[in-house]
Simulated assay, not measured.
Amino acid sequence: MELPNSAEKHLGRAIAALASDRFEHALFEWLHRCFEIDNTTMLAYFQNRVPEIMFTHAIERKVHEKLFSDYVPGAYLLDPFHALHVENAPPGLYRLKDIAPDQFQRNEYYAAYYQRTTLVDEMAYVAYPAEGVSVQICLGRDKSSGQRFSARDVQKAERIAPIVCGLIEQQWSGLQSTGDYRNEDLAGHLITALEQEHGIALSPRQAEVALLILRGHSSVSIGLRLGISPQTVKVFRKQLYRRCGISSQAELFSLLIPLLSIPDTV
């Protein structure tokens, strides 16, 4: 396999750095020599606690500006890449445009958080070094280059995916997670928090629909996931908005995102 720009040498350094605090940077240096990367985020998702950030690098400061203040406390629960963890997706490479819900770029999470990062393209390696733990190496293009990953970039990234996933499994095998994550539990938490904070009582189905709306699913997509018709979804949406005293997704986001920003939400 041809790897450009002395990538083999940097792969060797990454392997040599396993089990040391030099590994994350060595891994980044290798990947950066395989194809152009504007930013990198290495993080672990768990079943019952907020993500752990292991490494970040970006040319554009806005990429990680809200990472610890907004994303880690709760916004991660709306991220398509976190959904890969929840769904226990097979190890490998995933590109955001292939996994995002059908109305992701029209939802409030995208407008309020993701768009502010200036990211124009993103892909991530996903692997499972321990039970209940997924580690993702997220690679992005942002306004510093303004360019999406090319077909050749993606092809190279896919070719080295087994190597990256193998390194992840070795480096972070000591991470631990207990309990289980279920969207039903998150919906239950939301129901309780909304009642306590605002005196608003939602049904379990209304809470499920609310979360799917915030993640960027259309009525058709929500219906497919919940096994109900799009028209029934629209009825639940109207009931939800009326119950909350709101009239837009932006208001729904503003109402609910603080309630997801509670440590150990599930």
Rank of each mutant, 00 (worst) to 15 (best):
E2S: 03
L3G: 02
S6K: 13
A7T: 08
K9P: 10
K9N: 12
H10P: 05
G12H: 12
G12W: 11
G12S: 08
S20Y: 09
S20C: 09
D21V: 08
F23A: 00
H25R: 12
A26F: 03
L31F: 07
H32F: 14
R33Q: 11
F35G: 01
N39F: 01
T40D: 01
T40C: 00
T40F: 00
T40A: 00
M42D: 00
A44I: 04
Y45T: 01
Y45N: 01
Q47H: 14
Q47D: 15
Q47N: 13
R49H: 14
P51N: 05
E52T: 10
I53M: 05
T56R: 06
H57W: 11
H57Q: 11
I59E: 14
E60S: 07
A75I: 14
Y76L: 02
L78S: 02
L78Y: 05
P80T: 02
A83Y: 13
H85G: 00
N88P: 05
L93F: 06
Y94I: 00
R95A: 04
R95M: 09
R95N: 07
L96D: 02
K97W: 06
I99A: 08
P101D: 12
D102E: 13
Q103R: 10
Q105D: 15
R106N: 13
N107G: 05
N107C: 09
N107K: 04
A111T: 11
A111E: 11
Y113T: 12
Q115N: 10
R116S: 05
T117W: 01
D121V: 02
A124F: 00
A124H: 00
V126M: 03
A127T: 05
G132P: 08
G132L: 08
I137V: 13
L139I: 01
L139V: 02
D142M: 03
S145W: 03
R148I: 13
R148N: 07
D153K: 02
Q155T: 06
Q155A: 09
A161D: 04
V164D: 01
V164E: 02
C165D: 07
C165S: 03
I168W: 01
E169Y: 06
S173W: 10
L175G: 04
L175D: 05
L175A: 12
S177Q: 12
G179R: 10
Y181N: 03
A187F: 05
H189C: 13
H189T: 14
I191N: 06
T192F: 14
T192L: 15
L194H: 07
G199W: 10
G199R: 01
A201M: 09
L202S: 06
L202M: 08
S203E: 04
V209A: 07
I213E: 14
I213H: 12
L214P: 07
R215G: 07
S219E: 15
S219P: 14
V220D: 13
G227Y: 13
I228L: 05
S229N: 15
S229M: 12
F236W: 10
R237S: 13
C244A: 13
G245L: 12
S247D: 11
S248D: 15
E251Y: 12
L252G: 06
L252T: 09
L256T: 08
I257M: 09
L259M: 12
L260R: 07
L260A: 03
L260F: 15
I262P: 06
T265N: 12
V266R: 05
